[in-house]
């Protein structure tokens, strides 16, 4: 199979994960969707390291695997289990409206607006740019703290993929530092989610109403 085709397949899966996230009702599904996304990333990086026979990228792939596929979902799942926060709380828009917005965003992503990105085929544009916009939309639409974390992590994945498809060459050291940055972010935000649950009693972000104006 053509390598390009393979990679596009991965991108498609990433995209579908985001769609699933938007529709899902349970937090565990969200986390699994994120896990699969990250797995795709690992796959992409793995193939790249194989192609270029680069040891450094291989290390990056492994660290990626450890952090995003193994540690992060575990952390989040633990929070859910400990505090029984499985329901993803309500969203602002119901499912049909959500899907409608997603469709609009996809159309926007492949429209003329983004045509300068000649390095990407229209399909890729929908998948990647649309994916980013949808992640942000997801973060806005959801009221649960964990959903917001997943939204941000998903956005980060998309940006990473986007950079890759644009042909960005980064030194391995940089990629590793970014990964560690994400790692710390995940740790800190999970600590915060626990604190929120302790203080406010739920992960519904709209309960945070103390500060206004």
């Amino acid at each position: 199979m053509n390598i390009i085709f393979q990679l596009q397949l991965f991108a498609l899966v990433i995209f579908l994960c985001i769609v699933v996230m938007n529709i899902a009702k349970k937090n565990t599904i969200l986390i699994f969707a994120y896990l699969i996304q990250s797995l795709m990333l690992v796959a992409i990086m793995g193939i790249k390291s194989y192609h270029e026979m680069s040891f450094e990228i291989g290390i990056v792939t492994i660290i990626l695997l450890i952090i995003k596929v193994i540690i992060a979902p575990q952390l989040l799942l633990r929070i859910i289990k400990q505090h029984k926060a499985n329901i993803s709380a309500t969203t602002y828009l119901n499912v049909p409206m959500t899907l409608g917005c997603l469709v609009i965003l996809s159309i926007f992503a492949q429209s003329d607006v983004f045509s300068p990105f000649t390095a990407l085929t229209p399909l890729l544009r929908v998948l990647l740019i649309g994916g980013m916009l949808m992640s942000i939309f997801f973060t806005i639409n959801r009221k649960g703290a964990i959903s917001q974390i997943i939204g941000i992590l998903s956005l980060e994945n998309c940006i990473f993929t986007f950079g890759y498809f644009l042909g960005l060459q980064q030194s391995a050291a940089l990629e590793i530092s970014m990964l560690f940055d994400v790692f710390f972010w995940i740790i800190i935000s999970s600590i915060f989610v626990r604190t929120i649950i302790k203080h406010f009693g739920s992960i519904d972000v709209t309960q945070l109403r103390e500060l206004k104006k």
């Binding site: 703290a145 915060f192 604190t195 929120i196 203080h199 406010f200 972000v205 945070l208 103390e210 500060l211």
Partner: peptide
């Protein structure tokens, strides 16, 4: 409470 909210 308010501090946690602000930080989040």
């Amino acid at each position: 409470k308010a501090d946690i909210e602000a930080a989040w």
